[in-house]
Structures are given as C-alpha cells and as structure tokens.
Write a protein that binds this DNA or RNA. Sequence first.
DNA 1: AAAAAAC
Length: 504
Amino acid sequence: MNQATTTAPEGAQPDFSTFGLDAAILRAIVEQGYTTPTPIQQQAIPIALQGRDLMGAAQTGTGKTAGFSLPILQRLVPTQSASVSPARHPVRALILAPTRELADQVADNVATYAKHTQLRSAVVFGGVDIRPQIEALRAGVEIVIATPGRLLDHVQQKSINLSQVQILVLDEADRMLDMGFLPDLQRIVNLLPQSRQTLLFSATFSDDIKKLARSFLRDPATIEVARRNSTNENVTQTVYAVAEPDKHRALVQVLRERELKQVIVFVNKKLGAGRLSRLLERDGIPATAIHGDRSQAERTKALEDFKAGTIEVLVATDVAARGLDISALPAVINFDIPYNAEDYVHRIGRTGRAGATGDAISFCSPEEERSMADIEKLIKSPLKREALRLPARERFGDERPAGRADGARPARDDARAPRDDARPPRADRDDSRGDRPARSHGATGHGIRHGRGAPVDEFFLKPYEPSGASVAAAKAESEADKPAATSAIKRKQNVGLLLGGYKR
DNA sequence: AAAAAAC
C-alpha cells in the first residue's frame, strides 16, 4: 500500500467490506490477507461497480489487478450458473494483457478471487498447446484473460464467441493501444458489443494515448492516483555514468558490492539478454534470460526459477517490464536505458511493490543521455549521474577487441565459451593470471578480475553533474511543452557530457 | 531503433 498517496480522510479506515461485494468474493479477499484497499482500489472499485467506463492511472505495485478483477466478479456473480453448457456460459468479461506471462499472472489472480464463486475463467495465450485452451473454452467460462494474437486465433477457429462480452479490460492499456498492438486490438474490439463497459489501467498514459483511449470509452471516469507517469516513491533511483564497454564490469561490481541476491537486469535487445546472461554465468553468477526469442517453455522456466530463487539474476528484455509481480524483489538494474521513457517507469516498478522499498540502478552511457533526459522529463525529476569505481580491465585483455565496434568477441573465443553452465565459475579456474602474453580475446575474456586477482589499477569515471542549465531546460520543456525548441539545447548539452563526463 | 503478440 502506498501511504503517501492515500486519499482516505483521517479516521475513515476504509475496508473491503464497504464495497458491498458478494460474501464469496469477500471471503477470498480475506483469505489472501487483504483488509485495506489501496487508493486505486478505493477509487476504482465503486466506479467500476456502477458499470461506468474508467481510465485508471496508478503507480506500479499498488494493486490495479484487484482494482478491476473484484468489480468484474461482483458484476458477474448474479448471472453465474452451475450449468456446464457453454451456451449458458457466454464469455462476459475479457481481460487483455501485452505479454503471456502477465496474462498468466492476471489469470491466477482472477482465479484466486473467484475461488468461492461459481464463476469460471480461462487464460489464453500463444506459445503453448492450443488444445487445452479450446477444451477450457468449450466447457464454458465467464471470464477470459488473453493476449491478442492467440485470442484472434481462437476467434478464427470459432472456439470462442465474444458477442456477449459485457466488460473489456485493457491491462497495461497504453501498451495495448500502441502501434504494435493496435491493429489486433481493433479487430478484437470490433467483435465486442457496442454497449459494454471498458476499463483501462496503467501506470503510464501519454497525452496521445489518453486521446486515443477516449475513442474506446464512453463517458469515462478518470482516476489518477498520485500523478500519471510518476514513479513509486518507495523506489530509490540511482544512475551511474558508465561507458558502454564498461557496463559488464560495472554490473558484476554492483552485484557484488550491494550483495544483490535477486535482481532483474533489463537490456534493450534480445541478443543482448542472452549474451549477458551467459557472461554472468561465466562469472559464477546464477543467471538466465527471458525474452521473446526464447520458447515459451524456456520463458516460463526462467521466471519460475527466478521466483524460486534458484536464479539470482534474470536478464530480461521489456517482455518483463510490465505488470509482473515478483514478491519482495529488492532491486532492478537498467543495464541499458530504455528507448521509451514509459518503460523506465514500468521496469523499476518491478521492485518496491505493495509498500516494500526497492532499488533501481541504471547504467547510462553518453549515447543514452538523450533517453535519460526523456525519462527525467517524464517523471519530472532530475536524476544525478553518479560515478562508479571500477576495477581495471586487464591491461591488454580488452573486452572490446580492435576492429569490433559492437563489442562482440571473435567467433573462436565464443566457441571456447560453452553456452551451457557445465563449466565451473571462472573465479575457481584461475586461468586469468598474467603469466603469459595477453591476447586481445584472451583468457580474461570480459576482463573481470575478482577473487585473488587484485586489480592492477583503478580508474575513476567522472560523474556527470546536471548543470543548472540542463535542469532548467528540462523544467521549461516539461512545463511549456515545446519539444522542438528545447531539443537543440539538449543536443548541445549532450556534446558537453561526452567531452566532460565520460573521457577515460 | 526495439520489443511484444498466432501458427
């Protein structure tokens, strides 16, 4: 619960029982140990119960899922029937989510809250056998949680009929309405009755998306708990100025220094995710990757192993940026600065959930200052660039061999580094002593020194101090909303940063 | 520019 954004009057002590929910639903809530609704729940539930359309913005980790699940169940309870005929079980509520893992998680939540009711739900997403999904739908369900592609597949196969849907929910609504999803979403919405209730939830809504969203809503209520696009204040944000080739070492350093045992490391690209997780394994750090090029089985296992604690570091693309609720996750690291400022808000929202505190650490290279500035503008708070003391690379064993601009190692070195984890951690093998000629792709590989391999020297990255001018410019830009006028200023400042902040 | 989402 986010105390700082609580809007309840003093002494009013809100309680779930005040919503007039069915006893069966209330019982499930109590069993979950919930007593006090969060601010978004307090505000959203009564409105949703009235059947009104709703656009709800609340910070990450403040219980949006229950905010729409509970009223859905309540609205459907009177129509529940014990009949198993699908004809008597038309789909009455449809919840769409942008990733399979999130759909799965939302479905778990819905099933939990519906446990003592007669209402049934099914989850439907791609990458897994479609047949069990068809069976579940045939048996009859009132609530379907889905990702768009597989849902349309079911529509084509006629294993689902959406003509009786009374309630549509878009979880992570701004993502569902973006260019990549919009065509599928439009197709789905066209299959639904015109007269229905539509609920939109997210932690972020850009002005453009808000406008677009209105075209899907009828006379909507708008709820903004705290400020739209704001980060959770329980999350401490740190930005380290780190040059691109130093990021791997910086990561190992931060993991060790802070003794982080559970952390999601976000990267921007799928290839980068696989590469980094393998490097970490070579460092003796239990890591795995989750991204869209992995099979669904691999994705599911990665997430499960991470949740179980078998894996300490989950290297993830933005497939894991939104919605995923990993209990007590202490920290998130942005190895890459996300291209979209909104994604930053969602990424760091994986930590500091349900009132807990969390750490968000970002590695910002000179090339990424533009993105970082966009983030600061979005969240309306400047973030100081901190210096990070790094152990030196091996004098000649540079992790970025000459001629390779992308930092990848030559193929033969790659061949020497098996993809699986059969190999013992590098620290134990100790083949990184300086008793032989250093090679550009040599035994030190990524250049990490640890264990007995003491650093030969250290260098110090001078932090970027946000100048008064840059802060003022960011403020002016966000207030006056004149991006064209200030982007030139921003560019100039970045040149300054490049020269002053990152020279080595 | 990238990621996500059906087969």
